[in-house]
Amino acid sequence: MEQYEAWKALLRSGEATGWQEFYVKFYQAFIDGNRWKQYLNGVGTTLMVTALALAIGIALGVLVAMIRTAHDQQRIGHRNPILGLLNGVCQVYVTVIRGTPMMVQLLIMGFVIFSSSRNYTMVGALTLGINSGAYVSEIIRGGLMALDPGQAEAGRSLGLNYIDTMRFIVIPQAFKAILPALGNEFIILLKDTSLITVIGGKELVYAAQAIYGRTYEQMFPLIGIACIYLLLVMIFSWLLGILERRLRQSDRR
């Protein structure tokens, strides 16, 4: 503390050495005024937004994938009109969400649709969830389509109903197959939470911006949050790896 004040004075007068400058800027970026707490709050918000968006994304993704798969599996000449309508809605949803930039979606949600809301973080999480749902639905659809139809046939031929066949046979196998893609989507989502600063969401980037707005020193806060994102992604990749290995148990030969 005392050393920081002393070296800060040196820096102002232009007499500081390289090491002293580094120390002062680092101290300013992370320690002075308990600024590390701001990063910590940012990480908390980032993780919360990721979790919320993931939950919304998976819920929407499963729903859309189920509707579209059920629609595609109908027999020719036995089409259900309600399912056809729902399938149309799902296709529009996927097309619009995948066809427009995430940033634009955030701006529209934040400043047009929810312009009166002050809860920017929640609006951001909702937007990310809706965005993610479109991609997750295609991942799930791919997993369901890739599974050998003989698996479902075997389940049904034993007298299991559609729900049980999906629950015990199709979904567990499809889930294992799509886990790497789903993990990828999760990591992208985690990093994309940084975009919600454009509508005022108070996550990690917001913390860095608030700090360099006061210190006028961008390098340390930005490199700092880059390292935090990297660390988070590495932790989650590691956890996903463990999950994948556990699910691969039945592949032993």
Binding site: Q151, E153, A154, S157, D251
Partner: peptide, 16 residues
Amino acid sequence: RRQMGMVFQHFNLFPN
């Protein structure tokens, strides 16, 4: 179907 057993060419055992 519960009263009709079926055996497939490709076994279709549940690998999970």
